[in-house]
């Protein structure tokens, strides 16, 4: 059976992605901090879908151990999905460097560190698919969310470059830009229901993107158009908006 590695497997979105692949008979390697928390998820996936699941300890911030982590995996997965991320409260991130740094590590440098290693491996094998969950917040910085947004923007640029590099090696790189999703990360925010996806929809969308080898997906189709509008507003006007 094909194998998927999920990095940052404890989030609501990761659970949905794991279920979506398990439903389609993929074995799973779930990587997260304090991974024993995910024993219930492991039994759930094995019983519901009859797939194999292993749990592996992984800390996105501990970049010095990323190579060891990857090379000690029992199987190097056919598909690696980088789901972890961290959204700070914008105001506290402005005032406390620790918050900003955590945001950059979780959403950008930690992801780059592990994906650099996976990309080497896939390039050599000339096969594999890498999926990165970024965010529409990375498409244009807004005052309400730009520290998170800028880290996600860096990740978007990274994935785009990686896709370009790995194209000759037939390794697919997929950028996922979910709009609002009902998850623990957004549970304090008031989200417009019509624009908000369920984690399950993200799970299905990611699986479909891998199957169809899409480069960039937005989960809910209208986000592509919303973001296009947001991006064409001239900076002279945009800087005056309260967004």
């Amino acid at each position: 059976m094909p194998n998927v590695l999920i990095l940052g497997a404890s989030s609501d979105m990761a659970v949905a992605i794991a279920r979506s692949f398990a439903r389609n008979k993929y074995d799973l390697e779930l990587a997260a901090r304090r991974v024993s928390r995910l024993e219930p998820l492991k039994s759930d996936l094995m019983i519901r879908y009859g797939v194999n699941v292993i749990l592996v300890e992984f800390d996105a911030a501990d970049t010095s151990h990323h190579a060891l982590f990857y090379h000690s995996l029992l199987v190097q997965a056919d598909i690696s999905i980088c789901v972890f991320g961290y959204m700070p409260d914008q105001h506290s991130a402005q005032q406390q460097w620790e918050e900003t740094e955590k945001t950059i590590i979780s959403n950008y440098s930690g992801a780059v560190s592990i994906l650099n290693i996976i990309a080497e491996d896939y390039e050599k094998k000339k096969q594999g698919t890498i999926v990165g969950i970024s965010s529409v917040a990375g498409l244009r910085g807004r005052q309400s969310n730009y520290i998170y947004g800028s880290a996600k923007a860096g990740f978007i640029a990274y994935l785009s470059g990686l896709r370009n590099r790995l194209y000759p090696a037939h390794v697919g790189v997929i950028t996922v830009l979910p709009g609002f999703v009902r998850t623990r990360m957004t549970s304090g925010l008031k989200l417009p229901p019509f624009l908000t996806a369920d984690p399950a929809e993200v799970g299905i969308a990611v699986f479909e993107a891998v199957r169809k080898k899409t480069d960039i997906i937005y989960v809910k189709w209208f986000w592509r158009w919303i973001m296009m509008l947001i991006r064409i507003v001239p900076e002279a006007i945009f800087k005056k908006l309260k967004m």
Partner: peptide, 9 residues
């Protein structure tokens, strides 16, 4: 609703 895992069968 998110506490929905199957633990043993």
């Amino acid at each position: 609703l998110k506490y929905d895992k199957v633990l043993a069968f």
